[in-house]
C-alpha cells in the first residue's frame, strides 16, 4: 500500500512539475515575444562554392596566407 502511494505521489509530482515547466515556458515565451525586442541574426555571406571556400580558408590558415589552391582533383 505504501509503495502504491509513493508511486502515485511520485508520478503525479513529476507530471505536475513538467506540466508547470511546459506551460510556464510557454508563458515565458509569450512575455518575451511581447516585451523583449526580437533577436537580430547577422546575415551570412552567401557563397556558391562552400567546400572550396572552406578548403581555401584551411590552406590560408596553415600557410599563413601565402598558399593558394590552384586545382582540386577527386582521387576516386
Amino acid at each position: 500500500m505504501f509503495g502504491l502511494q509513493l508511486m502515485l505521489i511520485g508520478m503525479v509530482t513529476v507530471f505536475a512539475i513538467l506540466l508547470i515547466v511546459i506551460y510556464g515556458s510557454r508563458f515565458l515565451v509569450y512575455v518575451i515575444n511581447k516585451f523583449v525586442p526580437a533577436e537580430v541574426v547577422a546575415a551570412k555571406e552567401k557563397s556558391d562554392n562552400v567546400p572550396m571556400d572552406v578548403l581555401q580558408q584551411a590552406v590560408s590558415q596553415i600557410t599563413g596566407g601565402k598558399g593558394h589552391i590552384v586545382n582540386v582533383t577527386k582521387l576516386s
Binding site: 510556464g24 515556458s25 515565458l28 515565451v29 523583449v36 533577436e39
Partner: peptide, 23 residues
C-alpha cells in the same frame, strides 16, 4: 520564439525557482 537567447537565460532561473518551491 522571437528571442531565443532571452528565453534560454530566463528558463534556468525560472525552473530552479519552481522546483525549489515545490520539491
Amino acid at each position: 520564439i522571437k528571442n531565443m537567447r532571452a528565453v534560454k537565460i530566463i528558463f534556468p532561473i525560472a525552473v530552479t525557482t519552481i522546483v525549489a518551491l515545490l520539491v
